[in-house]
């Protein structure tokens, strides 16, 4: 084993990890854009009704501004709240801005680990790991990993999972 690999693996253990910075930019852009569009709704309706005036323009501007701000704040919070960490016996996940969610998956319960990359994730070079157990309801999705980290983490999790116990 090279020292570089060891160092990279050690980095996975310990403190809670957040998704990559690029994921935050993505979420901020997505939520900001989405809520900005939503905020444009009232102004756009007024325009469609044929009341083009300074007030309508102001409503449109304020709506977009408020929506985009809320979206950006939400995207940042969602990024900051989402963490994963390798505990001593279990994979621990936290997420959720309004409703805080936590999930704890014991390593020896891991049945399957999927590495997924959607089109947008491929574009900005991120990966997603989905850790599955025998329960369909387990929540084990790790968003926004660097591809290298994702492969390494999968390896590490499989190694921590050890011999599975067939439920």
């Amino acid at each position: 084993m090279t020292s570089l690999g060891q160092e990279a693996t050690d980095r996975l253990d310990g403190d809670p990890h957040q998704p990559a910075r690029r994921a935050r930019s993505l979420w901020v852009a997505a939520f900001g854009g989405g809520l900005g569009l939503l905020g444009a709704g009232p102004g756009a309706l007024a325009l469609a009704a044929g009341t083009a005036s300074t007030t309508t323009g102001l409503v449109l501007l304020i709506g977009v501004g408020l929506g985009a701000t809320a979206g950006v704040a939400f995207g940042r919070a969602a990024w900051a709240r989402r963490t994963w960490s390798l505990g001593s016996t279990a994979l621990e996940l936290r997420r959720g801005v309004l409703v805080h969610r936590a999930s704890s998956i014991p390593y020896y319960r891991i049945q399957q680990i999927d590495l997924e990359r959607g089109p947008i994730e491929r574009l900005i070079g991120l990966s997603q790991l989905v850790v599955r157990t025998a329960a369909a309801t387990s929540d084990g999705t790790l968003y926004g990993l660097e591809p290298d980290d994702a492969t390494r983490l999968r390896h590490r999790l499989l190694e921590l999972a050890g011999v599975d116990d067939a439920v």
Partner: peptide, 11 residues
């Protein structure tokens, strides 16, 4: 027999 444990808390 527990596969995983989750929690959630609203404001």
């Amino acid at each position: 027999r527990v596969q995983s444990v989750r929690s959630s808390a609203s404001p």
